[in-house]
Write a protein that binds this DNA or RNA. Structure first.
Length: 636
DNA sequence: ACTTTCACG
DNA sequence: ACGTACGTGAAAGTG
């Protein structure tokens, strides 16, 4: 047995790495000590839990002084037995380990999730900011440095040089295609993922860091848990832990891909990219993704550029290019000028390549052997607690064109269901700020922006008046001003200023509410507290964002509660993905209408005197079906 | 590592 | 005093 000593915060700690079953007696004694909470962690071959070839190599169990690093290939039964004991564990980022253990060891999420504390959830509730934003950060390393031992090693970075060498050696022995495929799947630091899969399982540093992580996470738990309690955050913490378990179940289920369709789409996008890149090349742009080249070529053609980026370079984003290409937001001709063919080609080539690399290739890279996608759902990500989805980013698939979403299909015999909240952010604002007239309009079920336009411009208001009021409402939610609104709507500055003033006149409570939040933050702690008790830190020079933070965060909590409610109602098995104000689901075709109606019903309800509404709709065989003509209509 | 761009709510 | 658009994930270029 390998036994390693390490000092953490002045305390002598021991890491045990048994290599045969006869050496497990000490582990059984350790378990029998009866620690109320044990640290838990896993070491795996990578991040793609459901992808081909994924393995869990080590499971570490320990407390603040002692860690047992257990080889899964030798001791899976002993590990499972320990995990099934009726006791609590503490994990950093439990969503990952819960699914690893479920998939590779068979201890299900449902068995373990409610007995797990997650220090990442604790840390987010105490300060949701990343280190780069001035917060404590959310990584184990960053938190350990602050709360446990400021000399705690960065376990991943410590292994990085070893991984680099392993990776370099491996690259010499395999084809370029193999390396390229690995780079694509593993992201920015391919050597790291290569190393985690291939470092010798008894490498001393690997074993040491594996053990240290559970000692650190246990100590972190004992530092953070009392603070959570003292701040009255126990109920919120309990809610977030429960939600996380449900989101893990959603992720484990995943969603089916239409791979034949994806391959064809990939070829189409590749051709589109190549064709338009060739056009751009004729105007001297070798690389359509180089903003410098594009700007130079456009200036060389005699175009005038007006906007600069923060870095002082010519801005050539989609807004700039579309004006030159004489295209509106829907890519239709405006007929305001002769379209610049380079601007047009760059826009189209960039769109095709982005769609291919970010979505279509990612679908193929991240799928499991059954062609299902298990995108990673982070239930508690943004400063406002909004959820995020990555690998691939399913919350960001193009919405104006069905092409990409069409690749995601319901299971055989099932159809897709979507249910989104109607104007949830504006309704949350009406509720929290107690905006009398707005609440009245929402209650009576009239078109809210039309109602506002009528209040301001009278019964003969125009479509543009309505658009302006809708935009002003957005401005209120985001904390924007006249200039931005003018840019967004294309309305003249004085009209916009008048619109905002009128908005404040008919809904005076909004301004009062924003002022109240800001002045509280100005004279007290630089934070706002939501009705769920969540503390949201503010940047001292951006106190105006207080209103937006409260609204966005509250809307998120409402969606989170809906997920819990849907699981409680027995509908969890139908759910596929949260998308901020929407839930994507699927159900067998013969019951889909009922399931959709029930989802909509459960998502709807009163919030501080304001009705929230959502209608579940059956959209079709695939996710794209609701967005446009379904080319496969009738085939299923 | 940082910047720019683009996809979403 | 004034006004400030909010929150993400990811690819790719640049230095």
């Amino acid at each position: 047995m390998l036994i390693l000593n390490h000092t953490i915060a002045g305390d002598a700690c021991t890491i045990y790495f048994p290599e045969r079953r006869s050496e497990l007696a000490g582990f059984r004694d350790f378990l029998a000590q009866g620690d109320k909470v044990l640290g838990l962690d896993t070491e795996t071959t990578g991040l793609g839990i459901y992808e081909d070839g994924f393995e869990c190599r080590l499971v570490q169990i320990g407390n603040g002084r002692e860690a047992w690093v257990l080889r899964v290939d030798l001791f899976a039964d002993v590990i499972c037995e320990a995990l099934r004991q009726n006791r609590h564990f503490v994990v950093h980022n439990a969503a990952f380990d819960l699914q690893v253990i479920d998939r590779t060891l068979g201890v299900k999420i449902e068995e373990l999730a409610d007995r797990v504390f997650d220090t990442k959830i604790f840390a987010h509730l105490l300060d949701p900011r990343m280190k780069s934003e001035g917060g404590a950060g959310l990584r184990l390393k960053e938190l350990s440095e602050i709360y446990v031992d400021d000399t705690a090693p960065d376990t991943e970075e410590g292994l990085s040089s070893i991984f680099s060498k392993l990776y370099a050696d491996w690259k010499k022995t395999v084809s370029k295609e193999t390396v390229d495929a690995h780079v694509r799947k593993s992201g920015k630091r391919p050597h790291v993922s290569y190393g985690f899969a291939n470092i010798k399982i008894d490498h001393e540093l690997y074993v040491r860091y594996a053990g240290l992580d559970v000692i650190l996470v246990t100590r972190l738990f004992y530092e953070l848990a009392p603070t959570i309690k003292d701040l009255g955050l126990n109920p919120l913490s309990k809610f977030e832990h429960h939600l996380q378990g449900l989101l893990c179940v959603m992720q484990r289920k995943g969603m089916k891909l239409d791979v034949a369709y994806i391959h064809q789409l990939r070829l189409d996008l590749q051709k589109e990219h190549e064709d338009y890149a060739l056009v751009a090349k004729r105007y001297g742009v070798e690389n359509i993704n180089s903003t410098d080249q594009v700007a130079d070529a456009l200036l060389g053609m005699g175009e005038t550029l007006t906007e600069k980026t923060d870095g002082g370079k010519w801005k050539v984003d989609k807004a700039v290019l579309s004006t030159l290409a004489d295209l509106d937001r829907e890519w239709e001709r405006i007929e305001a000028r002769d379209p610049n063919p380079l601007a047009d080609a760059v826009m189209r080539a960039k769109r095709a390549s982005k769609w291919q690399t970010s979505y279509v290739d990612a679908f193929l890279d991240y799928r499991d052997p059954d062609d299902r996608l298990h995108a990673s759902i982070n239930g508690l990500q943004a400063r406002t607690a909004r959820m995020s989805v990555s690998r691939p980013p399913l919350q960001q698939l193009p919405s104006g064109d069905f092409k990409i979403r069409r690749a995601v299909v319901a299971d055989p015999g099932h159809v897709m269901i979507s249910s989104d909240y109607d104007q949830i952010e504006l309704r949350v604002l009406a509720a929290l700020a107690d905006v009398k007239a707005m609440k009245h309009a929402i209650e009576t079920g009239v078109d809210l922006h039309g109602y506002t336009a009528e209040l301001v411009y009278g019964p003969n208001y125009t479509k543009f008046h309505r658009k302006l009021m809708k935009g002003t409402g957005f401005g209120k939610v985001y904390g924007g001003g006249a200039e931005t609104l003018a840019r967004q709507t294309g309305a003249p500055m004085d009209g916009v200023k008048h619109a905002i003033a009128e908005y404040d006149r008919v809904y005076p409570e909004i301004k009062r509410y924003s002022k109240k939040l800001q002045s509280r933050a100005e004279f007290g702690k630089k934070e706002v507290i939501t009705v769920s008790g969540r503390h949201l830190p503010l940047d001292r020079d951006r106190l105006y964002s207080a209103t937006n933070y409260v609204i966005q965060s509250t809307a998120r909590d409402i969606l989170a509660q809906a997920i819990v409610d849907l699981f409680d109602a027995g509908l969890g098995d139908y759910l596929l993905l949260p998308i901020h104000d929407e839930l994507l689901a699927q159900a067998p075709a013969d019951v889909a209408d009922e399931v959709a109606a029930e989802i909509g019903r459960i998502m709807s309800g009163m919030f501080y005197g304001v009705p929230l509404s959502s209608t579940g709709e059956v959209t079709g065989r695939n996710w794209g079906a609701a967005y446009g003509a379904d080319p496969m209509a009738g085939i299923w």
